[in-house]
Design a protein around this nucleic acid. Sequence first.
RNA 1: GCAGGGGUUGUCGAGCCUGGCCAAAGACGCAGGACUUAAGAUCCUGUCCCAUAGGGGUUCGGGGGUUCAAAUCCCCCCCCCUGCACCA
Length: 954
Amino acid sequence: MTVDFVKISEKWQKRWEKDKIFQVDGGDPEDKNKFFITAAFPYLNGVLHAGHLRTFTIPEVVARYQRMKGKRVLWTMGYHVSGTPILGLAELIRKRDKRTLKAYSELHKIPMEVLLKLDTPEAIVEYFSERATRAFKKMGFSFDWRRNFTTDDETFKKFVEWQFLRLKEKGYIRRGSHPVRYCPSCDNPVEDHDLLEGEDATLVEYILIKFKGKIELDGREEECIVPMATLRPETVFGVVNAWVNPEGKYVVAKVYMEVEEGKLEYRGIWIVSEEAAEKLRNQGRVLEVIKEIKGEELVGKTVINPVNNREVPIYPAKFVDTSIGTGFVMSVPAHAPYDYVALRDYYRSMGRELKEEDLIPLIKLENYGKYPAKEIVERMGIKSQEEREKLEEATSKIYREEYHKGVLNENCGEYSGMPVKEAKEIITRDLLERGIGEILYEFSEPNVICRCGTRCIVKLVKGQWFITYSDKEWKKLAHRCVDMMEFIPESLRKEFHNKIDWMKDKACARRRGLGTRLPFDREWVIESLSDSTIYMAYYTIAKTINMHNIREEQLLPQLFDYIFYGEGDIEEISKITEIPRELIEEMRREFLYFYPLDWRCSAKDLISNHLTFMIFNHVALFPEEFWPRGIVVNGYVTIEGRKLSKSKGPLLPMEEVAEMYGPDVGRFYITTCAELPHDADIKFREMKRVRDNLERFYHFAQGLTDVSPEDINYEDLSVIDRWLLHRLHKAIKLADESYSTFQLRRVGILFYQLINDLKWYRRRGGDNRELLRLVAETWVKILAPMTPHLCEEIWELFGKKSYISLETFPVAEEKYIDDTLELGEEFLASTIEDIRRIVEIAKIKPKKIYLYTADPWKYQVLKIMNENRDRSIKELISIVMKDPELRRYGKEVVKLIRELMEMGVKPVIDEEKILRDGKSLIEREFGCEVIINGEDKGNKKRQAIPYRVAIYLE
RNA sequence: GCAGGGGUUGUCGAGCCUGGCCAAAGACGCAGGACUUAAGAUCCUGUCCCAUAGGGGUUCGGGGGUUCAAAUCCCCCCCCCUGCACCA
């Protein structure tokens, strides 16, 4: 007889909806008995899948639990549609892209005739939000649906506008330029998924150090700048020459920097490679080329190091790549193996030897002499510049060690004595400030190719809007928030502190995509991660806005100021917004009641962006009392070992889980199959087993409809009854703890333990049906947050008229908890196990089993040990030996203490009584008579110690 | 490179924070038995090696240390995963 989980779920979902049991309104602000939990809403360019299922089911279960704990629970969901992916998807569908159509029909299960119509962003948003809603409902999510919205709703956009106006007012929005990966052919920034090659490439910042030179122009000698590109600006103090590629093409050009839009600043005449000129143009400079020259023309000329005015010669070197940096490299042979080898080669070609006096050391490094580069080159036996591989190795080794352990020496002026790690940053800053350094961005890999086949460039986007997450004061507030918050797992706290420290200014607007336009610059659309940082606050008021059809033009900034800050005159606001005063008051009340957010749940991919932004925006816009209180992060999901993929599968739509296995099975499985922070691997076999177990639980309950827990006679309970009762209350306690700390897997384990407990109970001859009914009723409540439909069904079967979803969570009663009962059963089980081992090893089929408990003095020793739990063995021996009675047993006492210690010190229990109670079980198991503490056969009795009876088989 | 997480018995996966009851939970797999006409389901038992009375031996990435005692604490090394941003 199988249970139809799907049918049961449909029945209860209908009833819940009809009775609106999950709609929630704010209560008395004085008595904030509330629980506000949210999950990072899904981005709707596809159906909800197994990953969403996990991330959303966790808070869903906890929300239901808290509801049963009597809290007013605000739990709902919105839909994220901002940004470009939906735009892109609409375009692909319009173009009838084969791969897209295949993925969306087969993986997302969209009928082709419907799919082909999804060729506008609006159609996609509408379709997928309906699908998402359906999936949530089928899984039995207990949302207050009145508060649902999408980020493209005009009303929500007004809220985002308010947010950005206030951020700008507080000085957290600025305008500037920004390097991005750019495709010159598509004329657009290139996102990760639009790359053919080079996904791993990062942006690296080269520092251009402006060495001064002279160049002949029109017969006159002119001052010019020869910029050296370097990743190690601190080594500028050790430059002894510069390198140029003699074969390379270079240009002499007047360089202007675009400091503001349309405003140029002259930066002098520069000599750079042709490729570098192009890069400079892309990165905010305007170049006027005066003439082209070949690298060899510069060989032998000199340049002046701007930090120490040292004049150094330019030498030729083949290793200089004109496509990297500027085509000029400053040579620091004391610390750069390439430079050392190239200079040595060059000197030799000139007929002289490179000597130590020719080098300028600038970094002191332990385990090395004055000239680390020279040393490593000699140690590795590098003979010429051609040995690229070895040189790379030597370079990275020296760079790494110098960076971490090096200290600048006396040649470094004001920076001497500084560790390289620190000096690097400071020197960079100083070079930039003094105008002798500039930044040039490069990719860390040579090949970064756009989907269109064009090589990407780094482009400086001008007029970009930023949120200034680099702001030190702002970071302080964010750190403070993190200090006050709770994190699950706790290790997140450290991680968030790190993320906050690393946060740089973030570009917060783009040229295209769905979403909200910047209220102060309508050309730009607010970037999709930036519009979703404080939207939990919107949940508190969305109900009022949705139910009363408040229109976007009514949602003026003054209104939000009143709702969130209590600022302004309500009469006046009511007048200008044409929103009735009561509704404004309602919104204010709901916000005050439900805020702050108690828990934010998400998968771990959002740690470094969304969750961190959420903290930043909250601390910027809200007073401390409204800062978020906790973050819960769960691991990823794989299916039978494979990563999820929206385009390649597997995906496992949430709806499919609901339809194929039933929502309760899916909910139970996804929350208990892995520990919260770990990745979960869905295995369909295991999911089936969950279904079997839940089914068994249903049948167990089904067999108990005719009895009542009211009829339990507590006076008359047997040992095993009391044990079961103890286990029940202990389970309540643990389940309570587990739910409140998001340890849902533990609840699952408790459930499996219940099944095992019931097995043992029956094996021990337990058959108190009233008690079993109590166990069933209690467990239905414990499981209700996880498997609500099944539990409602059983609840109804038990003749209850209420919804179990609204019942009170069971309360553990200490008076029924007695750990010695548990120790007793364990003792009994281990006794049986011991007998079994002897039977097996000795190959005896016993006719009679004699069991002997230990002599009383041995329990006395155990008792003393219990009273002195923290003592060492030595101490225990001396304590026990103080007792003259016990001292009589001499060495035996010492031996006993050691044995008991090894076993673990447990309280003394009445072993004989337990054995007598379990006698019939042992007799049944072995099919023979059991004699307890009878005649001492084979002188065995003396072997008995507490928790280990002596056994004699006959 | 920087940061965070992790390496446990056939597999997955607890335990490690708060050292001793850890040969190490549980699940799966495998093997044996009971039940059954049979299959499935269910229940019992075993599953590192050795052992004819409940015993012994070798294990928890590698190496070293602290301790009467370490999978668990400390140090070093190796390996794996994730993030490093404008992208949802």
